[in-house]
Structures are given as structure tokens and as C-alpha cells.
Design a binder for these strands. Structure first.
Lengths: 340, 340
DNA sequence: AGCCTCCGATAAAACGTTTTATGGGAGGAT
DNA sequence: ATCCTCCCATAAAACGTTTTATCGGAGGCT
């Protein structure tokens, strides 16, 4: 409200009748200050509502308490949950978080990385928007970086991700065992390592089931158009497996628009669960990613790096839970041949 | 990766064979530098990958490029979308965003406000966790603050919110006109102005419909328990209107667990739409809040304040869209008396 | 009393910038 | 040739901290 210059350590010192050095010593808990002065300084701080300027503090001491987070899109609930978890962990360790979004656009990611570096964060946690991440890293002393969720094509980074291939494979073999004979796998783009790994894993576990992959892009309108087109072609696949959040959402709507009944006309499964998948009827079979655990692992690793750990880059793969639900269960007694 | 001290303006100056002042002048586009030196400096900057330290810069120049955001919970998609929009707007105006979450807890909010202030942001956008917000503001020179979504009980703030009462009233009268004779309104807590305003608005527009309000708290487990309990009591209300995101989600599940069919056994409407409400069958009637517009208005107002605008605090109320869907439509021809 | 030690407080330097004030050199006018 | 003006570059101060080095004084010892 009041637009005056914020109180500085000098004003506190003056009010307490001591030097700025003493104020600093009190606030940082140095044991060299006498009882009386401690009390005086505390009083002055309270009266003035003084909070030390973290920037100036960092400038002189070199001790950072700021970390940066770069995510593709904050409005995606999964990334929201990721950042939220991170924020709490960081807080517990005394760090604040600078959050930027790359909007899934490589140029924007590059620019954000540069601008975030101007704050000299002690460390960075990044979910890159595609595999070419390391080329966009500004050269010149970068802080420690932990890459999460999506794997860059090159570069030596600490990585935290999920076992995409295994989980996708589990879904595919579940579908195959359910008697489905063809499966369309839909994802945004193979430029994203997640999608690539999921497709590879899905294909590898297909068994006798016929598999096809379709790349739909990142724009919801385009996804919708392309999927409409594909699903109207004969023969229609007996199962649809969507590999990421946006694709799943649009696909579910498209199925409904085409009047296809799940799972009678087509089975439906998704990577990346969101809450609505439990709420619809039938509920949707989905791979639930351990977002909180991923955030936790990423932060823990970053803390180690910030503390000076110089071990070689480490990769961590977390396993997902497969939630089998009604959307992939064969309607009892209905032989598939009759429906197709 | 490399843990050396980041390049400073001094190294750039040395490499370019000029003084630090000249480097600064080049980078800030001061017109007083000769062509030749500009080129030399640019080259040195590129070679070293130099990015000026925003903190040191701010310290000397007094020009800030950091703003703070305080939200109750980043994992709530609505707040995620809010922050996401804010982030893009801020970016366009050259600001970075420090994001903290208060976890809907007053003490945490107070602590976050204090810690965020240590970064000396140029301005703050806050969604408070309850009405007592102004009491938690640290005293002593605060930056301009815009409060969004929830209205504090006191204090002179710029406010951006939605017309809760009118929108809730519209839902209630829609229910009444549909022939429902009793309605249970469920919300987290009346300590949140939104919930209070929505309840007031809903009650005011009830007409002949019997209204009851139930406060369920913020904890999902407790919400679930209390709602189960209430809905098993006779007489069961003919309609359920939930006033916030979490309550809605839990309520929808509870209805399903109790085996109640929507809208035959009970009509269902929600404030605060999320994407799944369009996906379930029947789709859920909901009030859609203009989250992006709210973020936009909040940021615009904050920009004005940061530019020095000293006009008296201003309140903005944005209007919501009411999405009438299947969950509140009377099953055709079925007289309600037969169902109840 | 004289000396040494130690404790506690402070003055001043340093961090990486921007800005103000200063200074030097080139060129034009007398 | 001398002087005056610009123009462009720089030295130095300043921002709000922390830290190092200094300094004064109280107390204990001979």
C-alpha cells in the first residue's frame, strides 16, 4: 500500500542503536552478540516489520534460496500437481520457486531458460518441451539441473521419469488378452520422448493384436479433426489407447460424438490419469503416473546437486499403477465378431 | 553443469576491452555508445553467454521485474489456469513470477507473504485463503496488491472477482423452474467469501423451493463422510447444488456410491466447472467462471498500480456463464412425486 | 601497576549492477 | 596556435546485504 522504500537493515540498526553488522549477526543467529543487543534488535525488527532483502543477501553471501521450475504448461493438471508438490518440498528446505511455462514451444523454452538464469537460481527443475532440450540451454555457467518426465535426446542430465514402456506394454497386453484384435494408439507427437517410449512399449507387448500409431499434434482442434477422420475409416480399430492428457480428453469426446459406445463398439484406455476417468461410466482404464513421487525424487536429487554432489548423472525410473476399469472390459458374453 | 561462478559484467568488459559502464550502456540500449564498441560488447556477451544478474540490477536501479503470486492450491486446475494465464501476461510485460501456495492454511499464507516480500517483488496478486487476509499482511512497506477471486473482510484492496450471487441465483431459479421443490446447497466453508456469496445468492433466488445449506470443510475425507450422512437422511433433497471444486468432485462420487441416479433421483449442479462435467452422462450443469478474464483483469490492474496509479481501490465483478446440461433437466413426463 | 587475552561491537570492503560525475581527445571556430 | 564544444568512455559511488579485520575495553594474571 504505502509506496515508500522498504525498510533496510540500516534503519533497523539505527532504531536499535547498533551497527548494521550487529543486526545481521542477530538475524543470522551468530553466537557473538550479547543478550541485551539481541533483544533490542529483535524489537526494532518487529516494530519496523523488517524482512531482509534476499537478493542483496545472496549477492554478498553467495547463498541462494531460489530455485527455478520450467514446465510446458501450468494449466495441465498433471504439471500443476508436479509444481504444487515441488513448491511444498522446496519450501520445507527454505527455497522459493520461480515458475515459468514454455507453452510447449521450443523457442519460448529457450527464452525462458535465459530469463530464469538472470535470477541466478541455485538449481533448476525442467520438464522439457522436446528432445532437443540441451541445445537450448544457455551456455556459460548453468546451475545444477534435474530433468523430469521427458528425456532429452542428448546431454548428461539427472533424470527422473516413469517406466513408460513397461506401463504402456501392460495396457496393450491387457487389451490383447481381453480379445481385442486391433488397437489404434494415438499420441501428440513422437518428438516427445514419453510418447515415443509409450508407443514402443505398447507395440512391443501387442502379441497377436494389430497395432497402428497416429500422431495428432498438440493443438486440440487439429487432434479432434484428425481423429474424427481416422475413426470414420473402415476398419475401425477394436481398441483406442491414447498416450497423453490432451489427446485422451479430445479422444473421449470424439468417441461420444461419433456415437461409439465404450467398450461395446470400441475399448478405450489412457496413459496419464485424471480424476474424471473415475467419474464417467464406464470408468476409464488408465495408467496412473506417480506425479508426487516424481516431484519428490527430482527435488531430492536437485538438493543433492545443490549441496555439491558431483557424482555422475543419475537416471531414475518410477513405476506406474495400471488402473483397469470398465472401459476395456469385454462386454460379457458378447463375442467381438458380432459387434464389429 | 559447471559450478564456476557465473560470468559477471566485469568479465565481459575485460574481454571487450571496455569499462563495465560501457557494457551496461550497450545492454540497456543507451544511445551514447559508438558503433564499434557496441559490436565488441555484443560479441563478448555472446561468447561468454552473459546474462545480467536481475537482482544486482534491481538493487542499483530500483527497477523491478518480478511479481509474486499467492494461491491457495496449485493443484486445483482452476488456480493452475489462473497462474498459467498470469504467467503469460507477466512475461509479455517483461516480468517473471514467483509462485507460492498457501495450502488453504492461514498461518502458511502469512508465512508465505513474509517470505515472498523478501524478494521485493514489484507487485503481488493474491487469492487469499479466507476473509482475514489483511490481518496477515506483513506491516511495513508492501508493494501494490491485487486480490482476486475471494473477497477479504476488510482492508482497501483492488479486487477482481466473479458475480457469485447472481450466478448462483441463476442456477437456483433454474432448478426451481424445473419443478424441484427442495435443494441442498453444499460448500466447503462460509469463511470463504465465494462460498458465502454463492449461498446468499442461491438462497435469495429460491422462490418456493426449500433451501438448506451444509458446510463440509476442506478435507475430502470429511466432506465425503458428512455428505454420505446427510444424503441418507430422509427426506432426501430433490436437488444438490455444490459450491466449489472439491465439494463437487466428492459429491459426484458420493451420489454414485449411494446408487442415486442423476437427474432421476436427484438433480445435480455445480459452481466452478471442470472439463469432466462435459464428459460424464448426463453432463453436469455448471457455472463456468471466466478464469482467464479474471487473471487478465488482475494483471492489468496490477500493472497500473506498479506504474504508479494512485486511484482509490477498485472492485471488478466479472460475470459467469451458466451451462445448463442434462444433470438438472427433469426426466420428461416423470412427475417428481412418483420418484420421491 | 603493567601486561596480556578475550569478548563483543563496529567500520569498511565486497558482491554485480547502474548511474552520476569526471576526464580526455577530436574537431571547429577565432 | 589557442580556446571552446561536443562526444564518448570511464572511474567511482551507490544499492542492501554479509563478512573480514580492526578496535576498545573489561578482566585476570604476574
Amino acid at each position: 500500500m504505502d509506496r515508500t522504500r522498504p525498510v533496510s537493515i540500516r534503519m533497523v540498526a539505527e532504531r536499535a542503536g547498533v551497527s548494521t553488522a550487529t543486526v545481521s549477526n542477530v538475524l543470522n543467529g551468530k553466537p557473538t552478540v550479547s543478550k541485551g543487543f539481541i533483544a533490542q534488535v529483535r524489537a526494532a525488527v518487529d516494530e519496523l516489520g523488517y524482512v531482509a532483502d534476499s537478493n542483496a543477501s545472496r549477492l554478498r553471501s553467495g547463498r541462494h534460496s531460489l530455485a527455478g521450475v520450467v514446465v510446458p504448461d501450468l494449466s495441465n493438471p498433471m504439471f500443476g500437481a508436479f509444481v504444487s508438490t515441488l513448491e511444498h518440498l522446496a519450501r520445507d528446505d527454505g527455497f522459493d520457486l520461480l515458475v515459468v511455462s514454455s507453452a510447449n514451444a521450443p523457442e519460448q523454452e529457450a527464452e525462458r531458460l535465459k530469463s530464469i538464469r538472470s535470477w541466478r537460481p541455485a538449481g533448476l527443475i525442467v520438464i522439457p518441451c522436446d528432445g532437443a532440450f540441451s541445445a537450448r540451454l544457455p551456455k556459460g555457467g548453468n546451475p545444477p539441473i534435474v530433468v523430469a518426465d521427458r528425456i532429452p535426446d542428448d546431454g548428461a542430465f539427472d533424470l527422473v521419469a516413469v517406466d513408460n514402456a513397461r506401463s504402456a506394454g501392460a495396457v496393450t497386453s491387457h487389451l490383447a488378452q481381453g480379445g481385442h484384435r486391433s488397437c489404434l494408439v494415438a499420441g501428440s507427437t513422437l518428438a516427445i520422448s514419453n510418447v515415443r517410449e509409450r508407443w514402443d512399449g505398447a507395440a512391443a507387448a501387442a502379441g497377436a493384436m494389430t497395432m497402428a500409431m497416429i500422431e495428432l499434434g498438440l493443438d486440440p482442434a487439429a487432434i479432434r479433426r484428425r481423429l474424427h477422420e481416422r475413426l470414420r475409416q473402415a476398419p475401425r480399430p477394436e481398441a483406442l489407447f491414447t498416450l497423453d492428457h490432451v489427446t485422451t480428453l479430445v479422444a473421449f469426446q470424439v468417441l461420444s460424438e461419433l456415437g461409439l459406445s465404450i467398450p461395446r463398439d470400441i475399448a478405450f484406455a489412457s496413459f496419464d490419469e485424471t480424476e474424471w476417468m473415475r467419474l464417467v461410466t464406464p470408468p476409464v482404464t488408465a495408467v496412473r503416473q506417480p506425479v508426487e513421487a516424481m516431484a519428490q525424487a527430482a527435488w531430492a536429487q536437485l538438493m543433492r546437486r545443490m549441496a555439491g554432489d558431483a557424482a555422475p548423472p543419475q537416471t531414475l525410473r518410477l513405476s506406474c499403477a495400471i488402473e483397469i476399469r470398465g472401459s476395456t472390459l469385454r462386454p460379457s458374453g458378447q463375442p467381438r465378431t458380432a459387434a464389429a
